[in-house]
Design a binder for these strands. Structure first.
Length: 510
RNA sequence: GCUCCGUUCGUCUAGGGGUUAGGACGCCAGGUUUUCAUCCUGGUAGCAGGGGUUCGAAUCCCCUACGGAGUGCCA
C-alpha cells in the first residue's frame, strides 16, 4: 500500500471559514493517523475571484490550530508548484489526450449562445437544461462543425473551451468512505468545461490532474462535491488512471445554527459569533470579521470542538488533544448528516481547557492586557490573580476586566449590594478591622490571618458572616461577588486593603 | 423542476435486530461555597410518518414527508 497522501485544497477567495478548517483538520487527522502526509494546494484557477491576503490567512490559520501541511506553496515538496495558477502549463497535455481519444471536444459557443440555449430548453420544459449528449449536437463545437472550420477557428485565435464528452448511457459508481456506494447515470452529468477560454483549467480537470500528479491517495472534502464526484471518476477513467484513483470521503456539511442551509460567512455577524478562525479585514470594504483566536479561544479547544462536528470517537469521551485525535480518528466514525453549529458548546470546551492551563501560562494574557493599561505587575502576582479567576471566566481576555480590582481601587460600588449589605453595624466592624490590620506586621498579613482577625471581630460584634463579609468585599472590589475574599486581600496587600476600606467608608457614608 | 445525499432529546452525538435508547452542551432543581463562578447530585427532553420483513425493528426493506447539496468559462 502506498503511503497515504491527502490534500486540503482551498480557493484563495477570502478567509477560510470554520467549515474549511474542519475539512483541513479531518484531512490532517486522517493523514497522521495513517502515518501519511498532509499537503496543501491553492486552487486559484479563477483569477477573477482572487482576494489578496487570503492565502496568507489560510497559512496563518492552519498554523494557529497546529495543523501545518507537510507540503505547501510556502513549504514545497517534490510535487510543486502548489498553486494551480503556477501549474497552468501542465493541464493542456491532459486535455489534449482526452480530445485525441475522443473523450473531449472543442466548443466555440459564446456565453450569450449558451444562455439562449438554456432559455430555449427551459421554454421547451426540459427538466434540466444542460450541454449534454443531446444538445451538444445543436451547438458550435468540434463535433458539429466541419473539421477544417474547427481548424480555422483554432488557428485564428477564436476563443474556445474544451468540454468533456460524457457518454450517454453509462452507470458511474463510486465507493465513498462516508456514504458507501453512490451511483449516478451518466446522462444526468453534462459536458463540463475542462479548459476555460482563458487557458486555465476548471476545478474538475485541475483537481484530477493535480491529485494524480501529487500522488494523492484519499480525497477528503465537503459534501458539496459529491454531485460532481462521478464526473471526476469519469476523468480518472479516461485519463487512464483508474488503478491509482484516490478514494473519496465526502464530509457532512456545517449548517447554520438557526434555520437552515449551509453555514456561510455572513452568519457570523448575524448570529454574533465568529465563523472564521482568525480575524479578517476585507481588503475591499475594510469590514472586520471577528475570529476565534482574537475572541480568546484556545486553539486546542477550537480543534477539539471542531473535531466533534461530524465525528465522534464512539464512546463518551469528549476531551481530546490534537495528538489524541490523531490516535483515534478514523473516517469510519464520520457521520453522514449535516451538523448545526453550537456556539455554547464551543465556549464550554474553551472553559474546560482554560481551567486546566497552568497559572503562569494564563498570567501571560493578563500581563499583556496590564501592559496596555500601563500597569506594572510581577509575573508572580499575575499568576496568583489568574489562579483566582480562571474558573470564573471562559476567555483569557476576561482576566483584566474581571480582575481589575486586584490592581485598582474600585471606581464604583455595586448599587444593589450597597443597598442590601452596607449597614452601619457592618461598617463599624470594617473600621475596627482596618485598625486591626494596620497594626499588624506586614509579614503577618495573609489570607489566614486576615480571616481569623475578621472572624474574631464579627463574633465580638455578635454578627454573622453574611452580615459583614459583603460589605468588606464591596469596599475592596466594588462588587457583590467574586473570588475568595481572604485570598484577594493577601494578593492586594495590607496597605491597599486598609486604604480601600477608608475610601469606601468615606464615599458610601457621604 | 431534475440528480444526488441525509433524518436518534432544542443542539452535538452513542447505539446497526432483544437496551429502563447512553453521554455531552443548554435549561431547571438541590448540594458545596461568605457571594458569584467552579464542582457534585438529580431532573427535563429524542428514534420524522406510514407500510412491510421478523417471535421481536431506533436498528433491515419500501413509500411518503421534511431537510440539505448540486444543477456556472465558481471552487
Amino acid at each position: 500500500m502506498d503511503k497515504v497522501r491527502v490534500r486540503f485544497a482551498p480557493s484563495p477567495t477570502g478567509p477560510l471559514h470554520i467549515g474549511g478548517v474542519r475539512t483541513a483538520l479531518f484531512n490532517y487527522l486522517f493523514a497522521k493517523h495513517n502515518n501519511g502526509e498532509f499537503l496543501l494546494r491553492i486552487e486559484d484557477t479563477d483569477q477573477t475571484r482572487f482576494v489578496p491576503g487570503a492565502e496568507e490567512y489560510i497559512q496563518k490559520s492552519l498554523e494557529w490550530v497546529g495543523i501545518s501541511p507537510d507540503e505547501s506553496p510556502w513549504n514545497p515538496g517534490e510535487c510543486g508548484p502548489y498553486r494551480q495558477s503556477e501549474r497552468k502549463g501542465m493541464y493542456m497535455e491532459y486535455a489534449q489526450k482526452l480530445i485525441d481519444e475522443g473523450n473531449a471536444y472543442y466548443a466555440f459557443d459564446t456565453p450569450e449562445e449558451l444562455d439562449a440555449m438554456r432559455e430555449r430548453l427551459k421554454k421547451a420544459k426540459v427538466a434540466t437544461p444542460q450541454y449534454n449528449g443531446i444538445t451538444r449536437m445543436q451547438m458550435k463545437n468540434s463535433l458539429t462543425l466541419p473539421e477544417d472550420d474547427v481548424k480555422r477557428r483554432l488557428e485564428s485565435g477564436e476563443p474556445y473551451v474544451i468540454r468533456l464528452k460524457v457518454p450517454r448511457k453509462e452507470e458511474v459508481r463510486l465507493n465513498d468512505m462516508v456514504r458507501g456506494w453512490v451511483m449516478v447515470h451518466s446522462h444526468t452529468i453534462d459536458d463540463k468545461i475542462l479548459m476555460k477560454s482563458d487557458g486555465m483549467p476548471t476545478y474538475h480537470l485541475a483537481n484530477v490532474v493535480d491529485d494524480h500528479l501529487m500522488g494523492i491517495t484519499h480525497v477528503i472534502r465537503g459534501e458539496e462535491w459529491l454531485p460532481s464526484a462521478p464526473l471526476h471518476v469519469l476523468l480518472y477513467q479516461y485519463l487512464g488512471w483508474e488503478d491509482t484513483m484516490p478514494r473519496f470521503a465526502h464530509l457532512p456539511l456545517l449548517l447554520k445554527p438557526d434555520g437552515h442551509g449551509k453555514l456561510s460567512k455572513r452568519d457570523g455577524d448575524r448570529l454574533g459569533f465568529p465563523v472564521f478562525p482568525m480575524q479578517w479585514a476585507d481588503p475591499s470594504t475594510g469590514d472586520i470579521s471577528q475570529g476565534y483566536k482574537e475572541d480568546g479561544f484556545l486553539p486546542e479547544a477550537f480543534i477539539n470542538f471542531l473535531a466533534f462536528l461530524g465525528w465522534s470517537p464512539g464512546n463518551n469521551d469528549e476531551m481530546f488533544t490534537l495528538e489524541k485525535l490523531v490516535e483515534v480518528f478514523t473516517i469510519e466514525r464520520v457521520g453522514k448528516a449535516g451538523t448545526k453549529f453550537d456556539y455554547d458548546k464551543a465556549k464550554w470546551f474553551n472553559q474546560q481547557y482554560l481551567k486546566e492551563k497552568p497559572d503562569t501560562e494564563l498570567a501571560q494574557y493578563l500581563l499583556a492586557d496590564l501592559e496596555k493599561e500601563g500597569i506594572e505587575c510581577s509575573p508572580e502576582k499575575a499568576a496568583l490573580v489568574a489562579n483566582q479567576l480562571k474558573e470564573r471566566v471562559v476567555f483569557p481576555n476576561e482576566f483584566w476586566p474581571e480582575g481589575k480590582f486586584f490592581f485598582q481601587q474600585p471606581d464604583s460600588y455595586d448599587e444593589k449590594t450597597v443597598k442590601k449589605k452596607w449597614k452601619p453595624e457592618a461598617v463599624e466592624v470594617l473600621a475596627k478591622y482596618k485598625d486591626a490590620i494596620v497594626a499588624m506586621d506586614n509579614a503577618d498579613f495573609n489570607a489566614a490571618s486576615a480571616k481569623s482577625t475578621f472572624m474574631g471581630l464579627i463574633e465580638d460584634a455578635g454578627l454573622k458572616l453574611g452580615q459583614v463579609m459583603p460589605a468588606l468585599r464591596l469596599a475592596i472590589s466594588g462588587k457583590g461577588m467574586g473570588p475568595d475574599l481572604m485570598i484577594m486581600q493577601e494578593i492586594i496587600g495590607k496597605e491597599e486593603v486598609a486604604a480601600r476600606i477608608d475610601v469606601a467608608i468615606e464615599k458610601l457614608e457621604a
